[in-house]
Amino acid sequence: MIHVEGDENPEIFDPDPEFDDDASESGIVDSGFDTGPESAAGNESATLED
């Protein structure tokens, strides 16, 4: 292991970022799949009701 000491350089690496909601473009293509907490909760609820 190599330990690197010095000042943070958030332009290169920022472990605690604030995102700009107005970012101009997406780096990925939306898959269209149902993902995320809201979708998962819905599936769970449906299973229980069944």
Binding site: M1, H3, G6, N9, F13
Partner: peptide, 10 residues
């Protein structure tokens, strides 16, 4: 090269 601080593990 090391532009940011932290640990680099080989």
């Amino acid at each position: 090269s090391f532009p940011v601080p932290g640990d680099v593990k080989l």
